[in-house]
Nucleic acid binder design. Structure first.
Length: 435
RNA sequence: GACCCCUUCGUCUAGUGGCCUAGGACUCCAGGUUUUCAUCCUGGCAACACGGGUUCGAGUCCCGUAGGGGUCGCCA
């Protein structure tokens, strides 16, 4: 039988990375087995389900390249089927009506647990079981006539032909009930696998206060979808060897439930950042450029394409995240550079620096051609004849043209900026700090 | 509280009874390379929760204890 897995989120606001990891594992599992990956939108909670939320969900999935094999099933379209099934359970005596707790809310439909122990083979945790005495009947249709999650979820999984239910282990208790429901409904019980939870940097479950746990936030922070996918895939699973940065194909090939961890995993932003840096480095030039232009645009920087591309090649290996780009490249695009206070204090406001800058300017002015090689040679000559150290020459020049004391190699920076900008910036520096 | 689940370096993990004086990665530290920073290279710190068994031999199997988490809704 062909493997079919699904991601069944309720579109109530943002998509949490814990949920998204479950989606990734479902996707990986389906692809590994040459099966199908489906989406079901559990949008029965009308209050909280909005079209914007559904849109956000779809965007997040597209960003992570989680392609689905069939049109999404919207649970809200299935209410009649759910209710019909409840009627049948009622007719067979497998469910009953009652004003639960005598609250006066009216009668709801309650599913009768079979009174036998339930156990199943969990794909990750092994044999799981629960004694009949510890399980109680539960509501499947509210007194207002709407179906409850348990009923709808099981019926829709049957409808979509889901063979493997891979979800968070906060669903374990539900699974015992769901299995009883499948049986009562006369349906095959699918395979279940329960993933451990993801916890925050404090080792605690993510709460509403952890504003950084939504998929969209990671995108905002400059992480690449492929990097987040890879990182999340490795949070709770490993290929069994030392590979960490892996292609989709490698992950699909290596993914098995047996290799999934059964204990909670903690999200480590530092490692995600490292991994993202690896992905940034592997980006084809055109892709990096497209991203970088987008960033400049967002920052309101109007960049001349040819010039900008040269800048990007200089800074790209230093950018660990997308959001690093503008801070790294910003000074190339304005002569009104912002000077780093510490750099100025430490390296610029020193005896002899004004003289050094004047001389450097004179050298740059007289250079026949102004490029990487010529500035390199000229400045090295200057260092030798002046008796100054490299640092005493390079640092002031760098700060004069960029405002900061670190960055790519100085000579390529000078070459890309070009003589005109370099001279103008040295003048401005002289005026601002040594006038 | 009841029931269920979980427990290897700070973090993610390898480990399926001998190959483990426990391996890799991130972080951190030191040194090297470098005009600076980043990269890169080399090295280092750092863990089997605890207690009992079983066994010639236990991180690996069993039991218990402790700690953490989940569930106990007419939410999903």
């Amino acid at each position: 039988m062909k493997v079919r897995t699904r991601f069944a989120p309720s579109p109530t606001g943002h998509v949490h990375i814990g949920n998204m990891r479950a989606a990734i594992y479902n996707w990986l599992f389906a692809r590994h087995h040459g099966g199908e990956f489906l989406l079901r939108v559990e949008d029965t909670d009308r209050e909280r389900s909005t079209t914007e939320a559904i849109q956000t969900l779809l965007e997040a999935m597209a960003w992570l390249k989680l392609d689905v094999d069939e049109e999404p099933l919207y649970q809200s379209t299935r209410m009649e089927v759910h209710l019909e099934a409840a009627e049948q359970l009622l007719a067979k005596g497998l469910a009953y009506k009652e004003d639960k707790g005598g609250t006066g809310q009216g009668e709801c439909v309650i599913f009768r647990m079979p009174g036998t122990d339930v156990s199943f083979e969990d794909g990750i945790k092994g044999t799981l079981s629960k004694a009949a005495d510890n399980m109680q009947d539960f509501v499947i249709v509210r007194s207002n006539g709407t179906p409850v999650f348990h009923l709808a979820n099981v019926l829709d999984d049957i409808e979509q032909g889901v063979t493997h239910v891979i979800r968070g282990d906060d669903h374990i208790e539900n699974t015992y009930r769901h299995i009883a429901l499948y049986r009562a409904l006369g349906a095959d019980v699918p395979n279940f696998a329960h993933l451990p939870m993801l916890v925050n940097a404090q080792g605690k479950p993510y709460s509403k206060r952890d504003g950084d746990a939504f998929v969209g936030d990671f995108r905002e922070k400059g992480f690449l979808g492929d990097a987040l996918f890879n990182y999340l895939a490795l949070l709770g699973w490993s290929p069994g060897d030392d590979r960490e940065v892996m292609t989709r194909e490698e992950m699909v090939e290596a993914f098995t439930l047996e290799r999934c961890q059964s204990s909670a995993a903690q999200v480590d932003l530092k490692k995600l950042t490292w991994m993202n840096g690896e992905y940034m480095l592997k980006l084809p030039d055109e892709e990096f450029e497209a991203i970088a232009f987008g960033e400049l645009d967002r920052a309101g920087i109007d960049a001349e394409p040819e010039y900008a591309e040269k800048v990007f090649t200089l800074i790209r290996e230093r950018a660990k995240t997308v959001t690093d780009i503008v801070p790294l490249a910003g000074y190339f695009f304005t002569d009104e550079i912002v000077y780093d206070e510490k750099a100025v204090k430490k390296k610029l406001k020193k005896d002899g620096v004004a003289d050094t800058l004047h001389k450097a300017k004179a050298i740059f002015e007289t250079l026949e051609v102004f490029n990487e090689a010529s500035t390199d040679e000229a400045l090295h000559d200057f260092v030798e004849t002046s008796g100054l150290g490299f640092g005493a020459v390079m640092a002031p020049v760098r700060i004069a043209v960029s405002g900061v004391q670190s960055g790519p190699d100085l000579f390529p920076v000078l070459a890309v900026l070009g003589r005109e900008r370099v001279l103008k910036r040295i003048d401005r520096t002289l005026e601002l700090f040594f006038a």
